[in-house]
Design a protein around this nucleic acid. Structure first.
Length: 445
DNA sequence: TCATATT
C-alpha cells in the first residue's frame, strides 16, 4: 500500500513489457488471494493473483494464476518458489510455471506453411528478415534437400510477427510455388497434444474388424476422423458455436449415438439433415456390422482438407488465447455417460473423488491399459460397495497411466480386495493392490 | 507407483 509501484510505464501502449501469467499448483484451498499476493510479493513483483475455482461451487481448486509485469519478474517467482517451499496444508511443494500457452505467446512463434519443397534456409531467411529479426528458424525436412513444406519461425517481437502475418499470409507466393504462403501462430503445446490425441483416436477407429472376440470398445465403432468437418463450412453448424468449433470432428456421430436418445437432437447438429438418416442410431449399428464404415463416407463430396491444417488461412489466435474451450477430447465422464452403467448403481466418482474412510482406499498399479473407471470399478465390486474408482489417464492423449484408486465404504472390503486381487494376473501383468498412502496426517492444532 | 489442478 502506499507506494504507487508501476512497472516502467513510459508512454502509451508500446509492445514492450508484456505481462506474464504463471500457473501455481499446490495452493491450499483455504488460502485467499490477498494472502497469496502478499506471499509472492516477497519474491517478485506480482500485479494480480487469481485463484482458480470450481465453476459451480466456487471452491478453490488448489491452484491459482499470477500476473507478473515482465518475464524477469515471472522468472524470479518461479525460481524462488517452484518446488522450493510447501505451504501449510499442502502435500507437496508449490508448483510455479508459465501458464499454458504463455511461453509460446512470448516467443512470437509462427507456423509457415506452403513452402516450396526445395526451399533453402537462406531463401526463407531472406524473405522473413524483411519484417523483423529472426530468432529461430526451423524448416521441417524429409531429407536435407527437401522440405516438408513448412517451417517454424520465431521473431524478436510480436510486432514483427504481426507485420509478417499481415504482409505475407495468403498473399505471397515463393518462387517455385503456385500457392501463397500460409502463416499462422504456431500451436501451443496444448493444441499440439489435442491434435495428437485426435490422430490417435482416428487411428484407433480405423481398425474396423478387430472386434471379433472381445467386447467392442467405444472408439472401435467410430468412423475415421475428418469426415465431418466439411459440413461446418455449410450452414448446418449452430450459429452460436461456429466460432469455437475449431476441431469439429469431436462431434462424431458414432460417439453421440451412444448417448441417450434425448441428446441426439443436439448431438447431431452440424450434420446435414439428409445425412442424419444415414448415420442415425439404428442404421449406424447396421452399417458397422456390415463393415460399411470404410466405404460409406468417402462418397461424400469434398472430403479432403483444402489445406494441411484445419483452420486454413486464418491466423486466428488473438492476443491471449481462448479457444480450446470446446476441445474436450472425450473425457472419462463422457464415456461413463455413454456406456451402460446400469450394473449396480456405482458412482465412479467422476469429478471430485469420493474417498472412503481411512484404510478403505486402495492404490492399484499395473491396471490393464484398456481399463477405464468403469472396468476398474467392475473388477473390484465383488469385495464391497465401491464408492469411487478412478484410472488415471494422460490428460493430453487419453491414454491410461495404468494406475488408479478404488475406494470402499469399509476397511474390511479394502483388505478383502487386497487379499483377493493383489498379485492376480489381469491382462498382461500382475496387479499390485495396496492401501492408498494417507497424505493428510495430523491436523495442525 | 499415491488424487496434477490451466479461470
Amino acid at each position: 500500500m502506499a507506494e504507487a509501484e508501476k512497472s516502467s510505464d513510459s508512454s502509451g501502449g508500446g509492445g514492450e513489457g508484456e505481462s506474464v501469467k504463471l500457473f501455481v499448483g499446490q495452493v491450499p484451498k483455504h488460502m485467499t488471494e490477498a494472502q497469496l499476493l502478499a506471499m509472492f510479493k516477497e519474491v517478485a513483483i506480482v500485479d494480480e493473483v487469481n485463484i482458480i475455482r470450481d465453476k459451480a461451487t466456487k471452491a478453490s481448486r488448489g491452484c491459482c494464476f499470477l500476473i507478473c509485469p515482465s518475464r524477469q519478474e515471472a522468472d524470479k517467482a518461479v525460481s524462488a518458489c517452484h518446488n522450493k517451499r510447501t505451504l501449510p496444508g499442502a502435500s507437496s511443494p508449490l508448483q510455479v510455471k508459465y501458464a499454458d500457452g504463455e511461453l509460446e505467446r512470448l516467443e512470437h512463434k509462427l507456423f509457415i506453411g506452403m513452402l516450396p519443397k526445395n526451399v533453402s534456409d537462406a531463401e526463407v531467411s531472406a524473405l522473413f528478415s524483411q519484417y523483423g529479426t529472426i530468432k529461430d528458424l526451423q524448416i521441417l525436412r524429409g531429407s536435407p534437400q527437401t522440405s516438408k513444406g513448412c517451417a517454424f519461425l520465431k521473431y524478436e517481437t510480436k510486432e514483427q510477427a504481426l507485420a509478417v502475418l499481415e504482409a505475407l499470409n495468403g498473399k505471397h507466393k515463393m518462387e517455385g510455388s503456385s500457392v501463397p504462403l500460409v502463416i499462422k501462430w504456431a500451436d501451443t503445446e496444448k493444441e499440439r497434444q489435442a491434435r495428437k490425441a485426435q490422430k490417435a483416436q482416428s487411428q484407433a477407429s480405423n481398425v474396423p474388424h478387430s472386434s471379433a472376440t472381445h467386447q467392442p470398445s467405444l472408439f472401435g465403432a467410430l468412423p475415421p476422423m475428418g469426415y465431418l468437418p466439411q459440413y461446418n463450412g455449410f450452414s448446418y453448424q449452430h450459429p452460436g458455436t461456429y466460432g469455437l468449433m475449431q476441431y469439429p470432428m469431436q462431434n462424431q456421430p458414432g460417439f453421440h449415438n451412444l448417448v441417450s436418445p434425448g441428446n441426439q437432437g443436439t448431438a447431431l447438429r452440424g450434420v446435414p439433415p439428409e445425412l442424419v438418416s444415414t448415420v442415425g442410431p439404428r442404421n449406424f449399428a447396421a452399417m458397422q456390422s456390415a463393415g460399411y464404415m470404410g466405404s460409406a463416407y468417402p462418397a461424400l463430396p469434398g472430403l479432403q482438407y483444402p489445406l494441411a491444417y484445419p483452420g486454413g488461412m486464418m491466423s486466428n489466435r488473438p492476443l491471449g488465447n481462448s479457444q480450446g474451450a470446446t476441445q474436450s477430447v472425450a473425457t472419462s465422464s463422457d464415456l461413463t455417460t455413454a456406456s451402460t452403467i446400469s450394473s449396480s448403481g456405482i458412482c465412479t466418482g467422476s469429478g471430485g473423488q469420493i474417498e472412503g474412510p481411512p484404510g478403505a482406499n486402495l492404490f492399484i498399479y499395473h491396471i490393464p491399459q484398456e481399463f477405464g473407471d468403469q472396468e476398474l470399478s467392475n473388477a473390484f465390486q465383488a469385495f464391497g460397495r465401491v464408492l469411487s474408482a478412478k484410472v488415471f489417464v494422460d490428460k493430453a492423449t487419453g491414454v491410461s497411466k495404468c494406475f488408479g484408486f478404488v475406494s470402499y465404504e469399509t476397511p474390511t472390503s479394502a483388505q478383502c480386495a487386497i487379499d483377493m486381487m493383489n498379485g492376480r494376473q489381469l491382462g498382461g501383468k500382475k496387479l499390485k493392490v495396496q492401501l492408498k498412502r494417507d497424505n493428510k496426517q495430523s491436523k495442525p492444532y
